[in-house]
């Protein structure tokens, strides 16, 4: 054998950390290897992995499902809001012409989007059609219904601070007999939705913390099981970041797979409930299709779950890896 100088592998880092293309691709490959290695390791213990992933998924599925429910309620609420109207019943002795003049005046108010006039005859026809009292109406000599103005309000006018004085002004008009407002309960509904949304956010925060703990604990156990390996890696020249990287990828995988399963669970739930929701809506003469998660929601779920996984394992790695100290 000839005598030759041995060259160690990558013994010294290049002095300038300039990312040449080759170095970048080597770096990417290292990351790819670490990511695949972590995934492969998890798949080799399918049961243990499934348990962690399922725990993460259930914790994520609950707030996600509530977001779906809230989104659907908001859609419904939006419909109601659009139909949020004030019916202004005019005095009995007012005829259509006087009603039309009042309509012009009211339409100029900034709170009002549109005003529709329902004549006495139209009101009667509608009442006949929907009340089922057509026969009784025939007994009457004259139309007992007043002229009605249907006001559609601008959404900004639905704030209680605007709405209440506005309604008071309308009601005080001498031509007006009484008001009936649908707006108020749409408004209450919005307030309830707001409260629920805050509640879901808090719940998500709490369950996110749970995910962090589940993944952190799983990674901690993994570190304990792989002490020898970490030690040997260190002896053959692994940097701390190399040792850390695999666990961070494990955490990311647990989070992402948990997010994926959570998404499947919620989608399944929506699918199971869609028919029921449709037939319920049908009872109210409404067409309503239960909406699943939107693309943005799914993206948020996946990104959030992966981030939670990385964060959880980061905490575990920081506390338990004990790198390069007492080797």
């Amino acid at each position: 054998m000839t005598r030759r100088r041995f060259q160690p592998v990558n013994r010294r880092r290049p002095r300038s950390p300039g990312l040449s293309r080759r170095r970048l691709s080597a770096w990417l490959e290292q990351h790819r290897e670490s990511a695949l290695e972590s995934l492969w390791r998890m798949l080799r213990q399918p049961l243990a992995t499934l348990m962690t992933v399922a725990a993460v998924a259930i914790a994520l599925a609950l707030p996600t499902a509530l977001v779906v429910v809230l989104d659907n309620l908001r859609t419904l609420g939006g419909d109601w809001q659009r139909s949020a109207a004030v019916s202004v019943f005019l005095a009995q002795d007012l005829d259509e012409a006087e009603g039309a003049r009042l309509r012009e005046r009211i339409a100029q108010r900034p709170e009002v989007a549109t005003v529709a006039l329902i004549s006495r005859a139209e009101g009667l026809a509608e009442f006949r059609a929907y009340s089922g009292l057509g026969g009784a109406l025939d007994q009457l000599n004259e139309n007992p219904l007043p002229v009605v103005l249907e006001l559609q309000l601008h959404p900004s006018a639905l704030e209680p601070t605007h709405l209440t004085p506005f309604l008071a002004t309308i009601e005080a008009l001498p031509e007006v007999a009484f008001l009936r407002e649908d707006a108020q309960w749409a408004q209450r509904f919005q307030a309830i939705l707001g409260l629920l949304r805050a509640g879901v956010a808090l719940l998500a925060l709490l369950l996110g913390l749970g995910v962090l703990l589940v993944i952190g604990n799983t990674i901690r156990l993994e570190i304990e099981n792989r002490r020898d390996e970490i030690h040997i890696m260190s002896l053959v020249g692994a940097t701390n970041s190399f040792a850390r990287r695999r666990f961070l990828y494990s955490g990311a995988w647990y989070g992402l797979l948990g997010g994926l399963l959570a998404w499947l669970l919620v989608t399944l739930m929506v699918w199971l409930l869609a028919d029921q929701a449709a037939s319920l809506a049908n009872l109210y003469h409404r067409s309503f299709a239960l909406q699943g998660l939107g693309v943005a929601d799914v993206a948020t779920l996946f990104a959030g779950s992966a981030l939670l996984g990385i964060l959880g394992s980061w905490i575990a790695v920081g506390r338990h890896l004990g790198l390069s100290d007492d080797i």
């Binding site: 990558n10 013994r11 040997i232 053959v236 020249g237 940097t239």
Partner: peptide, 29 residues
């Protein structure tokens, strides 16, 4: 770590990883 990459260490108890193949063990450094 970079210092250790210039040193090959051999131990009485081998310090091999039993959940990996022979070539995976050798490939570690």
């Amino acid at each position: 770590p970079y210092h250790r990459r210039g040193i090959g260490m051999i131990f009485q108890d081998h310090r091999l990883l039993n959940d990996r193949t022979v070539s995976e063990n050798v490939a570690l450094p």
